[in-house]
Amino acid sequence: MEAEKVKELKKVALKLRSNVLEMVGVGKAGHLGGSSSLAEITAVLYFHKMRLNPKDPKDPKRDRFLLSKGHAVLIQYAALVELGYFPREELKKVKTLEGLLQGHPDMKTPGIEAVTGSLGQGLSIANGMALALRLEKNPARVYVIMGDGELSEGQLWEAAMASANFKVDNLVGIVDYNRIQATGPIKEVFDTGDIPAKWKSFGWHVIEIDGHDIPQIAKALDEAETVKGKPTVIIAHTVKGKGFSFAENSAAYHNAALTEELYKQAQEELRKQGELL
């Protein structure tokens, strides 16, 4: 990937974080941690890799982006608004009766592909979509993002077996491996063991990357496209709360309210990161 492109996508990721911050706002709860850990992955998917048609969100040829970890929907809204799926004013009205943007993915929002939020269901939905696309000989691809805490849901492993059983290769799983769940570090709360080995033993092609490294993300997504006859999962090592010093590697901002001071500090930190680009 050219340096210019990398820089552009870094700027996008920063913009996405800034949109997330705007939606989290002051004094109301918001999933900052698990949204910001996905900024680079979301940037590369929406602004580089996926075939999209923002003018026709239901275009059958579009690639699909699903957040199985639906609580991180703020990062998806952040991208969709930049692509013009809905007006910017909606960001301020997130999680209100007047607004379009619900606390978790909802079908009334253009660009949202499925209802998620009850953890563990996204990969099953993605399998169904991918199998339907295959039947239709539709080349569209399905990208589904799972949380590492979410991996303790049994249904995900039922789905993982199904993907392998049906040799679903038009679907890419991405694990946001930030090592933290809602109430603390995965190692301490509920240790899910050797995640890459688990996926391998379930018959998946496994790629491990730094989930904040834009060229690595792009390369992994390209590699996934060349894998035939089995599903691919990208285990993306990430930092929960990435970009916000007070939230990094912490469960405290999994879903929390920001004070006025922290909000200002967060804005300032993003501004500084922008200057460095």
């Binding site: 109301k28 709860a29 639906g70 999680k95 619900q102 606390g103 978790h104 909802d106 209802v115 998620t116 939020g117 009850s118």
Partner: peptide
């Protein structure tokens, strides 16, 4: 968090 008491999270919650 029964009923509508988790007001922000919406229908899934």
């Amino acid at each position: 968090s029964c009923g509508l008491s988790d007001f922000g999270d919406g229908k899934t919650h």
